[in-house]
Nucleic acid binder design. Structure first.
Lengths: 229, 229
DNA sequence: TAAGTATAGTGTACATGCAACACTATGTCA
DNA sequence: TGACATAGTGTTGCATGTACACTATACTTA
């Protein structure tokens, strides 16, 4: 089977920058390429856009096929199309970024036996193609976006302690935050639901657990409000 | 001449939302389609991405070909790729937005005699394809961006009075701004160069002219600062 | 079971920035 | 020269952000 067009068409791909958070670091999900070009190098998960498939659907499909990650927060980032970015031919890539919490999403290598793995954002190897540039833009976008939209909660489990939430902002924004000011601010937003539960299995005083209250958030969103941390 | 690929490829286009400002309104540049589908309807200027051409270069080329507009501020907006957005086939469009000042850029219709014209942002006709959606996203982006980056100056002539700048923010953000607070804030940023010139041909006291000082802005940008109006 | 330890949880004082508000100055025009 | 149209200018109150240190609680271990 083959397809013929009157004019030459660039190839179209999607790539995904998947962020995850654990105790220690903000991490990004990479796969090791099995094929040339850049065989053996680490790269962002991604692949070709199929006909009659929206870019977002392509990104979700590729993400699941290559890493097993599904049902996550995912947004379009930017479209990269410098003619030189792929040595084979002109390939235009619609980059996306996704946020997952590491507890719920166990990754698995793709069926074709390439490796997949989490890398601390400050300790990423040289990436194939222009994926280093894409990763940097995704990280910048994440830094900017957590300040005025509550997308950070996607990186946490359903129930979390305030310390975990603060840790998230500290890792993403890469700076220390005062505990009292943080709690004052985040609680005054009224988007957290206080639960009748506390942490378990900790060897010290257990912290109260909270849940992100999407309903309240949507109410506030209509008016517009400041999420600055 | 024809081109054959192993897999089916979506077509790839660029579209441009060009904003301009005059005394009265924020305006957007539209063209009237000459061909089906949507022949006769108004649409955003745009066209196909050529092979070995970056998306931004495509956008600039199409903009000049169809409207005569060139050498303007232009940035990528978002990539629209719902399979149903074009009735002919799957067409993925990389949308851009551009800012021009209406004095410097006289528009002209494209060579194939289609019309081009400016429309007040609140008075835009029904557009072809999903261009209404694209326009709305571009307007939202503009509103957001003028608050923390000095891109608004692209909409003004080189030399301008503070009243013109305030008018710009009022039109873009669609709200009234207090004159004293605005002048205090914008002057305190230190990104304006006060000129030894005043307006001419006005039938009242002439206002002092200013120029955007890109050098000072770049200095400040390194530290990061608040451009909120 | 008491002391140690590790983290949870809490309030105040100061500085900064934003919002509200009205009058004088200067040039043109009739 | 008087009417007019727009330029240009400061202060005050309020809200928000920032800096900062101690007590409370649960578990661990000697």
């Amino acid at each position: 089977m083959s397809y013929t067009y009157e004019y030459s068409r660039p190839a179209l791909t999607v790539d995904c920058v998947v962020f995850g958070l654990d105790q220690d670091d903000l991490k990004v999900l990479l796969i090791q390429r099995g094929l040339e070009p850049f065989a053996g190098q680490w790269a962002l998960p991604g692949g070709f856009v199929r006909i009659d498939e929206s870019p977002e659907a392509s990104a979700r499909r590729e993400l699941q096929e290559e890493t097993g990650v599904r049902d996550v927060f995912l947004e379009q980032l930017y479209t990269f199309g410098e003619p030189s970015r792929d040595p084979r031919e002109h390939v235009i890539s619609i980059a996306h970024y996704a946020l997952v919490n590491l507890d719920d999403h166990e990754i698995r290598a793709a069926t074709d036996a390439r490796q997949a793995g989490w890398f601390a954002i400050d300790d990423v190897p040289t990436l194939a193609f222009d994926h280093g540039t894409i990763l940097k833009m995704a990280h910048d976008r994440l830094c900017g976006k957590v300040r005025y939209q509550p997308i950070g909660f996607e990186l946490l489990p359903d129930k979390f302690a305030l310390r975990q939430l603060q840790n998230l902002y500290e890792k993403v924004l890469d700076r220390q935050i005062d505990k009292r000011n943080f709690r004052k601010k985040i609680l005054s937003m009224g988007i957290l639901q206080e639960l009748d539960e506390v942490e378990t299995d900790v060897s010290h005083r257990a912290a109260r657990l909270y849940r992100f209250d999407k309903g309240k958030y949507n109410d506030m969103f209509k008016n517009g409000f400041n999420f600055e941390i």
